[in-house]
Amino acid sequence: MPVALVIGTDPIAHMVATAPFRLEEDEAKFAGALRKEPIELVKCETCDLLVPAHSEIVIEGEILTDQIVPDGPFGEYPGYRSGTMAEGVGFRVKAITYRNNPILTIIALGVPIDDSSIAAALTAGMAMKRGLNHRGVPVIDVYVPPEGVTHLIYVSVKKGGTEVAKEVLDFFTARRVMVSKVIVLDEDIDVFDSGQVLHAFATKCHPGRGIVVEHYEGRANSLTPCYSPKERERLKGASVAFDATWPPEWLPEIIPVKASFKTIYSKEIQEKVIQNWKSYGFK
């Protein structure tokens, strides 16, 4: 199978390359839409594949589907040296094309925040939101905090509760499981603000009935540092959803009211304080 590896191209194209796409979807069009200008493509020297025209280096070749070549281990994206030499994919190089004095761009994976965790925060979050929507989950937003290295995800939903938390967890555990912890939040929480998320988790997730766990074997992420050697070998693991939403069956009168500037003061007082803020000596 022909393959072309592209090193050093438009940063948006690299970013888009980290996002999951279906076979029929066109990554180059998507990257072009984001940069508001098409990505100029050229045909490879040895096959019909198209690659960004202004790449620093392109390595063309073919995947060997009947050969095993040792792969890794590397400093991995969860932030640890983990993994053994895996039975990886062999690649036979047929041609290398490059610009004059090319720049070899690399990624140094490890403890976040790094290139990988930032890319995942943008592109994996977008793909997860699309997938949850497709599954019928009333999702508002998804954030993949870089510090959580795609093991921890924040999901806000229009309507919460244990059943919705289970639906969210089902989405993340349906195939190969890369996510081990999900915090499910009400729609008033800004998932991009980890302070708000932690407050909601600390106060709204019931320690007894607010935690949904699913165990599985044969599809866990072996790069999960807390798994034992045996679990990694058997791809055995678990994922958990922390339901930090108010139970949907609760009447409005029993839902605790937030004691914040915006929720316990009248509109008039809020406006007065904002207007006079500088006169109080604050900046």
């Binding site: 009947d66 050969q67 095993i68 895996a86 599985y216 044969g218 599809r219």
Partner: peptide
Amino acid sequence: SESVPGKPWEDVYKAMKKS
């Protein structure tokens, strides 16, 4: 030989089949 006959990621597929 620098490569050995086999299916890439066979170790992963084996674990998946066992489950």
